[in-house]
Design a protein around this nucleic acid. Structure first.
Lengths: 258, 258
DNA sequence: AGCGTTGTTCCATATAATGGAACTTCGTTT
DNA sequence: AAACGAAGTTCCATTATATGGAACAACGCT
């Protein structure tokens, strides 16, 4: 695709942040050198600047990790997000109806970023999923969102994907995905049938702002062993209804042009 | 603090992000111009670059908001944070013992950033507090953390504070704060007696890595109407014990030099 | 203790940011 | 609806900053 327009100095600095994020654990200077080919002097200065800004911190063993200020930015981003705010009561209602985990996600390029989550038992990590980015092609929310894109846009994205078989059921070809998206577009909802994680399936429906500047989806997720496919199918009308209400609310609360 | 060393281009870009974050709502181009005095061309390019990087997004009405990628970075920062991970079971235990809200925070300059939270009823917004930055001088965790800093460092920070009386009980002078921090340092724990928010008080204890590269605290917070000062005082040993265990675990799990 | 590796500093050069000004677009008023 | 003013965008010569090779320092391993 056309990534022609460069973001210059900022891009290099963010590339460093991104490398640290992708590592998923504290990384050493040399690891970063291997991940992004910046020369020592440059990398060192980038890290130094990022540290001064609080976006990167060091551990005593000279390993680098993401800084706490990122949490502060994310907190602000989350708290001020109107779409999330509008969707929230509907997520709660959907959760009340199903007693299963409900997600709100937004399409960002080829990925879905989860904006909110309501889950039954706060069992494990409540917030761990917020902000998590997952591939759009193997998640319910992602497929639902892709399905409502203008055809040209959708094809461009589908054709720039590189597929990975997370499970035996993961869709791994552009043709198969396009076909699936066509079906989803027609019926207005998507299933994720253990395509991202074995034992987990979900039903999802797309949401969007009137002008499609915001495209995402909501889903009800459950473990296959506990919730049957039939049960999931019975929830579809609820998911769709919630999605429609969110769309309607966005139109009302953000104005007709939103 | 000595912020003398500039972060150049990156700093200007982050200043834009920060301005959007501080606004707490979508802002227009002209608002940003007023907040940070960047000339139109420069501001426009900064915004444009930040958008290409996914750190800023636009609403249809040309207002700017924080981008979703910030959530992804924060998610990674949170998930990979060893201190938080180590503290977590102790936060849960403290919560089990008190049945009130328990916080973990880290000192960042003059502020406290909340890294984790365990609360009784997941009533309102579970994650809303994670990543939130609050002034160190009027929060239990903040005062506890400040109290264990080397004296020089502490004085520098205290003297660069600008105080704001959030409530009638807020400490608003460097002298009073230093005195309070001395008391806290001696006894090893802090109270926040409605200093940040009327009707909310808490008991806190400092935590830190052996080399003080990480300095923070934990607290039990409760509404004054429901939990008396006496009750809070009875919890102090529990808070201190949890803090000691966290300190010990950090020493063990991150190695003696951590 | 010595050596190889990892991380840091320096500086002439190349590159990207700067910001004034001209231009376009949008929203508002008459 | 047209005209006006304000908001936002583009352009480009100038200036400031990033670049990265190389020399240097610190660390950790045997």
């Amino acid at each position: 695709m056309d990534e022609s327009a460069s973001t210059g100095t900022l891009g290099k600095a963010i590339a460093v942040l991104d490398a640290i994020a992708r590592a998923g654990q504290p990384v050493r200077f040399r690891d970063l050198r291997n991940m992004i080919g910046q020369p020592p002097g440059t990398l060192h200065r980038n890290l130094s600047n990022l540290m001064k800004e609080g976006l990167v911190r060091t551990n005593p063993d000279n390993s680098y990790a993401l800084g706490y200020r990122l949490l502060t930015f994310a907190s602000a981003a989350w708290a001020s997000n109107r779409f999330r705010e509008i969707a929230e009561p509907h997520l709660r209602e959907l959760h009340r109806q199903t007693d299963e985990t409900v997600h709100l996600g937004v399409l960002e390029g080829l990925e879905v970023v989860y904006l909110d989550k309501v889950e039954s038992r706060q069992a494990v990590r409540m917030h761990s999923q917020i902000g998590k980015a997952s591939p759009a092609y193997c998640t319910g929310v992602g497929k639902a969102a892709l399905s409502i894109l203008p055809h040209v846009d959708m094809r461009i994205r589908v054709n720039s994907l590189s597929f990975h078989a997370f499970t035996p059921k993961t869709i791994v070809s552009a043709q198969a995905l396009e076909e699936e998206l066509g079906i989803i577009a027609d019926r207005g909802f998507a299933f994720d049938d253990e395509e991202h994680e074995t034992g987990i399936h979900c039903a999802a429906a797309p949401i969007h702002s009137p002008d499609k500047s915001f495209v995402g989806g909501i889903s009800v997720t459950a473990p296959s062993y506990r919730v049957s496919r039939q049960q999931l199918e019975q929830w579809v009308p609820l998911v769709i209804e919630a999605a429609h209400e969110i769309n309607s609310d966005i139109g009302i609360k953000l104005g007709p042009r939103a």
